[in-house]
Design a binder for these strands. Structure first.
Lengths: 136, 136
DNA sequence: ATAATTGCAAATGCTTTGCTTGTGA
DNA sequence: TCACAAGCAAAGCATTTGCAATTAT
């Protein structure tokens, strides 16, 4: 119901249109990591005239504004999710594609340390785990 | 001079052709992480008739045979390197594109632990650090 | 001999863009 | 009003593929 992304747009001065508002709503309500096609299908159920080009332009705009995050997991097309306050990484189920988010401060710290040891300031990183469910 | 990839092909029963032998040589001698276009240019200096399609098909074949590894770093096309005995991850200089390899056993262990805690067997992972050189 | 490989060009899949019309502040 | 956004179709880019000719074993 809430549309947190729309609020962030207002806060950041991102101009709103009907299309952007709807895409914002759909993304705000998503609990998964939809790709552009998924988003296009979802918004089209409400407004069938929104073009996929607009979805592409909008997710890019949101991403550049820091409102959503883009992920290029192995072998898939780009997926998006609302940017969260808490940084997190992803574990991808190689059988189902299911995505689980996780946080591990120890790994974060080690990454920073590794970069510094190599003479670099850590700006960004990408950590993805690929696994299969353990049946017990 | 040596062509370790060619040896691996023989060992694994990968059929060799002149084109594959040359691509193997160029990749064996590379100390960087070339993309398909780089490889095509390099082999073309020796045999200008090798098509880019063959380079694509060959790196794919080598990858499926476990002889080379493919990396999709952010914002770039796929890059390749000979698979090493020692697993390693990469730090990418966001200004120059320069790639530094590193190994960190602690991070490896933590990844396994994280996956297991979430009920998964860790099959594969991807860890990339993006940073900028610290000038001192 | 013959199944696999090559080169070429055409096709693909995802994403971006030019252009004209429509619209938010 | 008027700079910016949307829709459409065409273009772009990396990669794959169909097919006829060539080659490795």
């Amino acid at each position: 119901m809430s549309n947190e992304i729309e609020n962030k747009c207002i806060k950041k001065g991102v101009r709103l249109t009907d299309q952007r508002r709807l895409i914002a709503k759909v993304m705000s309500e998503a609990s998964d990591h939809p790709d552009v096609d998924d988003l296009h299908k979802r918004v089209n159920q409400i407004d069938s005239k929104i073009s996929i080009a607009t979805v592409y332009r909008t997710v890019k705009l949101f991403e550049e504004s820091g409102i959503v995050s883009k992920h290029d997991f192995k072998g898939n097309k780009a997926r998006y999710e609302q940017t969260t306050h808490e940084h997190h990484d992803h574990l991808i189920d190689i059988n189902t594609g299911e995505i689980t988010e996780f946080i591990n401060e120890d790994i974060e710290k080690l990454q920073k340390k590794v970069a510094e040891k190599l003479g670099y300031k850590l700006i960004d990183h990408r950590l993805e785990l690929y696994g299969s469910k353990i049946k017990k």
